[in-house]
Amino acid sequence: MTALLEIRDLHASVGDTPILKGINLTLNAGEVHAIMGPNGSGKSTMSYVLAGRNGYEITGGDVLINGESVLELSPDERARAGMFLAFQYPVELPGVGGMSFLRAAVNARRVEAGEEEVDQLAFVKMVRAKAGELDINDDMLKRAVNVGFSGGEKKRYEILQMALLEPTISILDETDSGLDVDALKIVSDGVNMLRAPERTMLVITHYQRLLNHIVPDHVHILAGGKIRKSGGKELALQVEETGYAGIDDAA
């Protein structure tokens, strides 16, 4: 079976500073992987590098979606190939209406897949249905993308986009940051609904508490730009108890 996402000995730098120093990870269909690590371990860099953001130099290794290298693909091509990044800090787009933004994203994917574009009425219905489950009201949908949203609203809006775009590979970058208990529950439920045998997820987090809600199949500890340790969900609990300090030596 071909992995949905494979990261092979990935090295990346920002300017002259190496951040990722040989990451290896294989995400198969149906699996949820968690990446945990202390601040500055390279977690956010990894999500940006996978999504193809400018400003990061890949100095070695490869990233493959369905067995094909995506390093030469632009961020939008990777997105249409099925990759979704839920941002740690979702970006505000002043003046850009939420509905037209969401529809542009959904239609870009449909056109790529040779499907019909979804018309406005059908789309509004589709969005309302999913938005309801995430406690996103019409007022939020009418506003410009992320503008005037609270921290929690922004995160829920990320999950709404994920639900609409139905990615095969979802990368959640610190999705729990800035969320209170109730919001965390809504967001996690949203994510869990999207777990499916044909999909995979990479959940990046600093804290274990998110993993109580989104229970991972595998947990990896990232520190100093490398995976220091991998294990099952119990590894996350171990981190919770002993901190990252103990783990670091284990490599």
Binding site: A51, N54, D76, A79, V91, P94, V96, S100, A108, E112
Partner: peptide, 28 residues
């Protein structure tokens, strides 16, 4: 903004369409 552009691209919107979207937002 690079951030805005990347956000749109990551949602699968092509660069020219993304620029048009952001510029139209700017003109809203």
């Amino acid at each position: 903004s690079e951030d805005q552009l990347f956000y749109c691209l990551q949602r699968g919107i092509e660069e020219e369409a993304a620029v048009s979207l952001i510029v139209n937002g700017f003109c809203k």
